[in-house]
Design a binder for these strands. Sequence first.
DNA 1: ACGATTGCTGCAAACGATTGCAGTCCATTT
DNA 2: AAATGGACTGCAATCGTTTGCAGCAATCGT
Lengths: 359, 359
Amino acid sequence: MDKKPAGKSEPPGKRINAKRLAEDLDVSISTISRAFNKDAVIAPETRSKVLDYADRLGYRPNPYAQSLITQKSRIVGIIVSHLENPFYPEALRGLGEALREAGWHVMLFTVPSGETPDDILPLAISYQPEFVIVMAVTVSSRAQEVAERAGTKLIYFNRRDPDSSTFFVICDNAHGGGMIADHFIDTGCRRLAYIAGFQNASTTLDRWRGFRDRCIARGVSDVWREEGFSFSYEAGYRAAIRLMKRHPSPDAVFCASDIIALGCIEALRTEFGLRVPEDVSVAGLDNIEMAAWPSHSLTTYSQPLDRMIEATVKLIEEISIGAESETVAWQIKGDIIVRKSTRPPPGGKRSEVVPDSPA
Amino acid sequence: MDKKPAGKSEPPGKRINAKRLAEDLDVSISTISRAFNKDAVIAPETRSKVLDYADRLGYRPNPYAQSLITQKSRIVGIIVSHLENPFYPEALRGLGEALREAGWHVMLFTVPSGETPDDILPLAISYQPEFVIVMAVTVSSRAQEVAERAGTKLIYFNRRDPDSSTFFVICDNAHGGGMIADHFIDTGCRRLAYIAGFQNASTTLDRWRGFRDRCIARGVSDVWREEGFSFSYEAGYRAAIRLMKRHPSPDAVFCASDIIALGCIEALRTEFGLRVPEDVSVAGLDNIEMAAWPSHSLTTYSQPLDRMIEATVKLIEEISIGAESETVAWQIKGDIIVRKSTRPPPGGKRSEVVPDSPA
DNA sequence: ACGATTGCTGCAAACGATTGCAGTCCATTT
DNA sequence: AAATGGACTGCAATCGTTTGCAGCAATCGT
């Protein structure tokens, strides 16, 4: 075919391996290996000679052979079930980059709509990743057992499992719920409602708990809960309609996620002709990028994604070098971000400056 | 040593391998291997004996050893550069599932903001995937060479490279531009504008070409082009502002992507007090899920994602079995979807329900 | 000056599979 | 009865690394 004699010498059509380098440079295969191994004993000039030549040839150690011999794959599997919730692409991007920077390879597994993360786990495990991060709201407790048998560590991201001792990293959802409750009450709202997400998700539960507890603590007992059944725009839209039928005229709605909140707002506007925030305040939780768009300008509680990612990578690194880390779990606080979907606080301050809308 | 009779359960703490099975079942390692290899010669009862026992022990052939010996990884790498454009998560999810169904493992590589897909390619290649799908708008032509040298096939998704002979799968962007132009002109718009994305992206170019050519063909010569420099909400917002300064009062704007269109609409509304579609029609291209939300209700041209994914997997399968497929490229037509961000057509019909037109 | 130490390198045995080739067993043909 | 063939199975080489151990030269301590 169109095979050019590239540069100096492209002798055989074989894939270049350590042996080839070794012969060309007149050293042993061991030396090649050591040149690439950060803390191996090797003369500096030998190392750079090898590395330079390797670079010229485009050689990199074969990771399969490496995995085979070292019994480590440096692979992290990520199972993600709801990419339609923008929170997940954002998290995925950050996590992917952070992990790669730390020298891990990321293998991705999305969960088909009909299935659960549990169904995908065996498949994920078959590639013997050292870790599997589950970025999904619902997983059975059996997952932990399956993973353990395969020697894979499980880490939950944005989810905790009360029953098991699995590692997890989440934001302080109860705190978030509480902050939103405070904000509602501070701005004079008294007829409050919550729109839930997946019924058994820890995120749904914790956010509700934090919200309701704070309301009660502050003497507001009129708190309605409407099920959303999932974390999506449509879920929010439909739940809002049901909410209005069963619990007319709330003056503030806290939604279990931003994307639910956006659906909810839309329903309130188009189905009931309500103005947000004049007639009803709506807040979410996540602080996805979209929430800051002027057209939405959603008040929300931000998940501290950067710190959550940082914690996850740190956790992985620690476990990986065998440090039986005591901090088996991370729960990180976020901040409330007040925008225009809720009534302004007495002082009139908002967290962010956003362009004014036309009258 | 500590060799327990191969009784029922879990003897030593070692990872189970073919050798272990072979000893327990009193066959050779070859036989174990053959039991798992679909079209290897082996007595049916021997196979099921092996498979049953393997299942009991939770054994699966070590993929690293397999890859090493067969020189095939069954891995497809996906490089994705702009997850903030919702089109990509949607595509990613679909592709991931389709590939997995076809028996491939998906390795994900996101491109950090400062870098280009080219920077990531060597890393992606180091895991010797059989294919790398580049879901990104800009890649240099050198990429093809790098991949080839490593024996990895490159496939562009949603992008074509005029210079090289790389496989690619895209939608018919020029057709899309043309359909939007028709729609604008049919609904009485005459002062047209286009907001571009990345300047050198094939998608930007093809959509512009299709749009402008059709305009000219129909005798509308007042077509302005404003650079957007990227495919994002902010890009659309800012480009719209510039557009209005330099080319006042267009009556229709075609944006190079849905997400640009959403930003554009927002700018027109908040910065200039314009109504959409009464004062100006705005259309995008992609048909991301959000476009259908009532709050946006964006007229757009749908990328035939399902068929694009199907084509991609088919391409991979064909190349993989060595069929020197002639269809080195797929270009698939989509459909225009008329919603409420553009003036209604004379008949007053909109196609909120996607028209199911055959190819 | 001599043994001990240091600093580097090579040998060879793994890791866990696949697969061409040769061998065994049994049934069928001549 | 011997030869042929078919259906399986086992042997052993191989893929490309890592790493403990041994070897060897140069340097050091006394």
